[in-house]
């Protein structure tokens, strides 16, 4: 993926000496700054992954970090994903807080066993004696013209596993805050990075307090009254664009950014849908057994009498992720979300 790596050089090496104040950053750079802040704060935080050292990662998200923190804390690993996660588990047992980079979504599967049978269960297996503060960063989602295994959205597979937290930021501020909250979490966190949004810019308050909110609480991006658009990661931008289009039609859409799909902020979704009476869930992952199915079930049970229409889902199909030439037909577009809204209003 040399060409992609060249194309995706987005972060600069002129990092501030001490992060403070408010800056305009790309989402990728915001993650970079978040990791830098976490590493300065706690010397047990370390990064592991393929090509994350001198190269700075194929998306340059770790750019400059090995230069600042050294090879013992920013480790270029052998090319083996199970090995990355498995050794991260051992490092966590010794008191470290490893942040693993999986180069692309489709390459996480060699590590699937370590993540689902070990990482997720060791805290429970040892009755709480051993915590697993491991973060696994995964660039995911499509829209960048990648080859096979470079555009997938496997998050539901991990949300289905107890013991893991699964989050995905949609904007630079959340990316900056969430990576730090993920690193501070004593639980393992799958941190899915919307790769098509790496270059999107936004204002980031570098002094944001780090708590646990963004790992647990959804965020209302836009208030509305007629329909709730539920999204996370790369689909939040699609939801916002859809809301803009709906406003022109005189319809008021509320946009909810879930931020996490494990846990899922059911209360926030339910509160919104009780207000609007309509719910559309948008994600790039296939809708079949996806996060949208879980949300639809919860909303149906909790808001049955408030619903004006069935909960509808807009997302990927039950097919392999398509070739780059056709990925834009597969991905949930504004037009397809508008179609779903029309169907909801037809009830």
């Amino acid at each position: 993926m040399t060409t992609m790596a060249e194309r995706t050089h987005t972060t600069s090496s002129d990092a501030p000496d001490a992060a403070s104040g408010t800056k305009t950053l790309t989402l990728g750079k915001a993650i970079n700054e978040g990791m830098r802040a976490a590493m300065r704060h706690d010397d047990k935080v370390m990064l592991m992954g393929e090509d994350i050292g001198p190269l700075g990662g194929v998306f340059r998200v770790t750019d400059g970090l090995q230069a600042e923190f050294g090879e013992q804390r920013v480790v270029d690993t052998p090319l083996a994903e199970s090995g990355i996660v498995g050794t991260a588990i051992g490092l966590a047992m010794r008191g470290y807080r490893p942040v693993c980079e999986i180069q692309f979504d489709g390459f996480i599967f060699p590590a699937f066993n370590q993540i689902t049978t070990q990482l997720s269960k060791i805290h429970n297996r040892t009755r709480g004696a051993i915590q697993m503060p491991v973060v696994i960063r995964v660039p995911y989602g499509g829209g960048i013209g990648g080859v096979e295994h470079h555009g997938e959205s496997p998050e539901a597979l991990f949300a289905h596993t107890a013991g893991l937290r699964v989050v995905s930021p949609s904007n630079p501020q959340d990316a900056y805050t969430m990576i730090q909250e993920a690193i501070a979490s004593p639980d393992p966190v799958l941190y899915f990075e919307p790769k098509s949004r790496y270059w999107g810019k936004g204002s980031v308050d570098l002094d944001t307090a780090i708590g646990t909110d963004t790992l647990n609480a959804a965020h209302v991006v836009r208030q509305g009254t007629d329909v709730t658009l539920v999204a996370y990661g790369p689909s939040v931008a699609t939801a916002i664009k859809t809301a803009d289009a709906l406003a022109e039609e005189g319809r008021s859409a509320e946009v909810l950014d879930l931020r996490a799909i494990s846990p899922i902020d059911t209360a926030a979704v339910v509160a919104s849908v009780r207000k609007t009476g309509r719910c559309i869930v948008i994600h790039e992952a296939p809708v079949f057994f996806g996060a949208g199915a879980e949300i639809a079930a919860r909303v149906t049970e909790e808001c049955f009498y408030a619903l004006e229409a069935p909960v509808l889902r807009v997302g990927g199909f039950h097919t392999p992720y398509p070739v780059a030439k056709h990925e834009h037909e597969y991905l949930p577009s504004v037009d397809r979300v508008l179609d779903a809204v029309d169907r909801a209003f037809a009830h």
């Binding site: 498995g86 050794t87 051992g90 047992m93 010794r94």
Partner: peptide, 10 residues
């Protein structure tokens, strides 16, 4: 065995 190696790296 990977946990052992990781622990040793720690």
């Amino acid at each position: 065995t990977l946990h052992a190696t990781g622990y040793a790296m720690g």
